[in-house]
Amino acid sequence: MNVSFLRRNRLLAGLFTAVLATGIVAGTAAPASAGNSHHKKIDYVALGDSYAAGQGGGRYLDECLHTKAAYPRAVDKLPGVKLIADATCSGATSLDVLKHQIPRVKHKLQKAELVTLTVGANDIASQEIRETCGAPGAAAPATFDEQRCTTLVLKAIANVKERVLKALVKIDDIRDRVKILVTGYPRLFAAPADAFQARANAAVDGLNAALHQAVKKANMWGVRAYFVDVTRAFHGRLIGDRFPWLHAEGNDTWHPNKWGHLAYSVVVIWHVKRIF
């Protein structure tokens, strides 16, 4: 095992421990009433897909591929925060969040102070897009049509932007002035080895930009939403790097491993501390 790898991972784990230790009780982080872990005051609802459910982070706990490494579980450990509903599920799309997850936990959202949302990756990785764009493991197209591939991806990204905006407004309508964190996604490949990998990275960049734009537009309508960028946290840890924090193969391909989910947790917790 490379010594620098161990040191960096220990540093990340140490940072995570420190964040949990301070919780959101440090003077600028939260209301004083949230400081007592025995009297949790910030009710929290998690929405989204496999990146929020924790797929790739260890042993699966249910059919939605939840693992103990999922960032909502880490947020729940913060003094002053209580996870009252976790609707995240592997395979969820932006339409699933809008049409199914939000209605299913509406009664919980009515009293939530914090909501996290991670969604969009499945929209740009639909079966049609995978087959058209020649993704590994998908049925290879008879002839590659770059224009059709690009058109499908851009349409999917536009749909995500529209649906996420609707979801943010809908959540705010259910619980006025709730604070919503919308997380982005890491790029997948450190140094794209072929055209598909380059397109995949570009698609993630486009998706992140769309999510950020949806948050900004929601802000204009009075929604207290915040974009959480995780790209820097994964710098030097992508597929192709020596010690990636993403699975390169197997059933969890392109999902964070336990270290990737730990990185997500650290970034999300930092933002929770910042907004409360």
Rank of each mutant, 00 (worst) to 15 (best):
V228G: 04
W270Q: 05
L61Q: 12
W270L: 08
D241F: 09
V119F: 06
Y226L: 02
R7I: 12
S265F: 08
P31K: 13
V182K: 01
K106E: 13
K161F: 04
D96M: 12
Y60L: 15
G250Y: 12
L20S: 02
A30F: 11
G184H: 10
N36S: 09
P141C: 06
M1E: 09
K258G: 05
A156P: 00
R10P: 00
R8C: 05
E131D: 14
N2V: 08
T151Y: 10
L154H: 15
V267Y: 08
R187W: 03
R104Q: 13
I239C: 09
D96W: 07
A112P: 15
Q147N: 03
Y264N: 07
A191N: 09
A74Y: 10
K170L: 14
A233V: 10
R8K: 08
G222E: 00
W254Q: 00
L168P: 01
I42Y: 12
D229P: 05
F227P: 03
K111H: 15
P256Y: 07
I102W: 08
D123E: 08
G35Q: 10
H247A: 08
R224S: 03
S33R: 14
P141R: 02
T231K: 12
V25W: 08
P136S: 05
T116R: 00
A92G: 00
V115T: 04
G80N: 10
F189C: 08
K170V: 02
R274Q: 12
A21D: 06
F16V: 02
Y51N: 11
L20W: 00
F189V: 02
P256W: 07
G14I: 05
I269F: 01
D241N: 15
V97I: 08
H212M: 12
D62Q: 02
I171S: 09
G236F: 13
V119C: 04
V75F: 07
A138V: 01
E128H: 02
S4F: 14
S50I: 09
T116W: 02
F144K: 00
N159I: 01
R224V: 01
P244V: 15
A92C: 00
T17S: 13
T150G: 00
H261M: 11
V75W: 08
A53S: 14
S90F: 03
T132G: 03
R8M: 04
P244C: 15
D176L: 06
R104W: 09
K106T: 09
L6N: 12
V178T: 10
H107I: 09
K77E: 10
V119A: 03
V204W: 02
A156E: 09
R73K: 10
H100Y: 07
V97A: 06
F189E: 06
A30M: 10
I129Q: 05
P256Q: 03
T22L: 14
Q110T: 14
G35W: 13
N159A: 09
T93G: 05
L117R: 02
I102F: 10
T88F: 10
I42S: 02
P192K: 03
